[in-house]
Structure formats: C-alpha cells, structure tokens
Design a protein around this nucleic acid. Structure first.
Length: 264
DNA sequence: CCTATTTGACCTAC
DNA sequence: GTAGGTCAAATAGG
C-alpha cells in the first residue's frame, strides 16, 4: 500500500534534475521579466528551475492544443488527461519553487494567489486567542488524556488549491489523517511532507475528490516545501494510478468504504 | 525491524 | 457545541 516508490531518507545524494535551460521563446522572456524583476533576489539556479518547469508546462499545453485541434491525427505521445496532468504538475513545481524561495513571504504570496485558478481563501491571519507558544503557559487548561502534545493550526501559511486529474505533484507525501467532511460525499485526506522531521519541511496538503467531477481531485496545498525534495519518481505521468489506488481503493463509487469508513 | 497507513481520540477555531 | 485538522497507537507491509 505504498503511496509511491519508497524514498529512502538515506538517499541524500539526490541528483539534481538536468541543468540545461531551454526557455527561449519571447513569451517566456516576457513572463520571466514579470516574474523576476531585476531587483528580486531569486537565485539564478531557482530561476532556471522555474523556467524549466514553465517550459515543460508550455510544451505539454502545446501538445494538448494540437491534440484537441486534430484529435484523429497522428498518435499522440500522451492522452489528453496525461497532458493536463503534466501541465498542472509543471506549474505546481514552478510555484513550489517560487514559494519556497527567500522572497516568498513578500511576493510569492500575492503571486500564487494571482496566478492560480483556484486560489486559497485565507491570507495571513492572527490566531484568535493569543496563540500560545509551544512551550507556553496555556497548557494547564488542557486535559492530558492520552498525553498528546499540543499543536497549532497553521492559518497564516500560504495556501492554494488546485483541481487536477492527478494528485501527483512530484513531492513525497505521507498521509497522516482522513476525515469525512460535512455535506461532502468524499472524505478528505491529509498529507504532510515526508521530510517534515528530517528536514523540517512544513508543507502539507489536503486532497479531496471534487463533488462535481469525481474523477478530479481538489488539492489544497498549505505552506511551501522547504525541503527542496522534489522526488525523482516524476516523469512517468501515468503513475497517478498510485495515488488513485490509495486515495480510493476503486476508481468509482461502490468501493468508497475504506475512505468513508472513518467517521468519528 | 523499519516505515507507511489507518483510524479513534484529541484539540482548535468558529 | 460542532466541524475540521492533527496526533499517535495499532496495524500492515516491505
């Protein structure tokens, strides 16, 4: 029941993806200029990675357009669904890099909210009741049943939502919970970055099937990756089946038991 | 044995 | 008080 090919924490010498840059079209040059005015401090390496992802997305979109324009033409290398997934994945990666960059708090916030079709609903907000620090004094009033530690909801982190045919975003996620949501047919799965503890990455995401289009997943990303650990599994865009297999034991209706079973 | 998933309980926000 | 997010023990699987 693996989410994805096991990613050993020991595999530290993760080889960086190819460093070649091929973003040359004028459209992308303009986009690049808009995204990264000279004054910004994004490293050249990050810029290159972002451009690579954007170019990949552009290529997939172009292929998709050709496919739509001429559906009975030459055999496409990928199905339309896979192309859509590829486009979304490329943009997600680019946004992840942008959001994890040092300038994220200042500019990426607005950026992400501007550019995503399904932008997050809450900006930074202040916790209502004087957010107790983890070692604070508000622990007294809490029961120690179970001896669990306290936690704070992360309302101030950047969030954004995507609708996609796949939940695969090239990051290693670990599921930590699932909940039946009120008035929602499908349960919501909660995931955190696999590198939460070894690299302190605070990124989490919530995945839920779309009510209107059950074949699509609504994924809400909360916080950006600080682990810089885009997995190597990537590539084979068909591996969304892995996600499907654990998010839903079966693709459609009938077999939602494992998901719905969990109801407090 | 180690790591990931499941799932009931706990906790916070509203 | 309720809904939803997180924790962590139990369990499964390699």
């Amino acid at each position: 029941m693996q989410i994805q090919p096991k990613q050993n924490d020991q595999t530290k010498d993760r080889t960086k993806t190819s460093t070649k840059t091929k973003a040359t079209t004028s459209g992308f040059q303009k986009m690049k200029k808009n995204l990264f005015p000279e004054s910004e401090s994004v490293s050249a390496q990050k810029k290159r990675e972002i451009m690579e992802d954007l170019v990949k997305g552009h290529e997939a979109a172009t292929e998709l357009r050709l496919l739509l324009q001429n559906p009975f033409g030459t055999e496409p290398s990928l199905s339309s669904h896979h192309l859509i997934a590829k486009v979304l994945r490329s943009f997600t990666q680019a946004l992840t890099i942008i959001n994890s960059s040092p300038l994220a708090p200042a500019s990426a916030d607005g950026l992400a909210h501007r550019n995503l079709l399904f932008s997050g609903e809450n900006g930074p907000s202040v916790p209502r009741s004087g957010n107790c620090p983890t070692s604070g004094d508000c622990s007294e009033k809490r029961s120690k049943k179970g001896g669990r530690g306290r936690y704070n909801r992360r309302k101030s982190l950047l969030t954004w939502t995507e609708l996609s045919y796949t939940t695969d975003d090239n990051h290693a996620w670990r599921k930590y919970g699932q909940k039946k949501i009120l008035n929602s047919e499908f349960p919501r799965g909660y995931f955190r970055c696999t590198h939460r503890y070894d690299k302190g990455c605070k990124a989490t995401k919530q995945v839920q099937r779309d009510e209107q289009y059950p074949q699509m997943y609504q994924t809400t990303y909360i916080g950006s990756h600080t682990c810089n650990a885009i997995s190597e599994i990537v590539t084979n865009s068909t591996d969304s089946s892995n996600w499907e297999s654990y998010l839903l034991n079966s693709d459609h209706d009938s077999v939602h038991e494992p998901l719905i079973a969990h109801q407090p």
